[in-house]
């Protein structure tokens, strides 16, 4: 059991919690009676999916994907020993030689920013769907005088709807 936790649960804890949150949201969407509770469940479902995508970009011991300097890392150290004339003569010819070397920061030390950028769009789309859904909820309240699903269904069955 402890071996199972060490190999399957601890390295993938984000993914286990993502599944749990997603099932909580799905349960609220299906089983809750109040329409606003259903919408809170929908938002939890959306954040669970975003949690899954952001967890894909995380590496062990990685930091935020922001650099505090521009350009290749080796310029200061590699050119430190040369004088100006030498650099003008050989500066451009030395570039292809250096291109094989390690240029820029090590990608293993920063989180993958691609899923982050995709999920920015997902957050904004999620809030706009939430806004439209809550506006429709207010229209439903104006029409039926309640937000409980069973009472709305009873009124529809009784034929109290004026189109």
């Amino acid at each position: 059991m402890s071996e199972f936790i060490q190999t399957n649960v601890q390295p993938y804890f984000n993914f286990w919690i993502y599944v749990v949150l997603m099932m909580i949201g799905l349960w609220a969407l299906i089983a809750k009676n109040n329409l606003i509770k259903k919408l809170i469940g929908m938002s939890i479902f959306q954040t669970a999916i975003i949690l899954f995508y952001v967890s894909l970009g995380v590496k062990d011991g990685s930091t935020i994907p922001i650099l505090d300097h521009h350009g290749p890392e080796h310029h200061e150290t590699a050119d430190a020993g040369h004088d100006d004339v030498h650099e003008k003569e050989h500066g451009k010819k030395a570039e292809p030689h250096h291109a094989d070397d390690h240029v820029g920061p090590n990608p293993d030390t920063i989180a993958n920013p691609l899923p982050h950028v995709l999920m920015l769009t997902a957050i904004v789309v999620g809030v706009s769907t939430l806004g439209v859904a809550l506006a429709i909820g207010q229209m439903i309240f104006k029409e039926f005088g309640t937000l409980e699903e069973n009472e709305i269904l009873e009124q529809i069955k009784a034929g109290n709807v004026d189109d």
């Binding site: 935020i64 922001i66 920013p113």
Partner: peptide, 12 residues
């Protein structure tokens, strides 16, 4: 998200 390194997602 701030803790996972996604600062842009965090402040959004």
């Amino acid at each position: 998200w701030a803790e996972m390194g996604a600062v842009d997602v965090a402040f959004t």
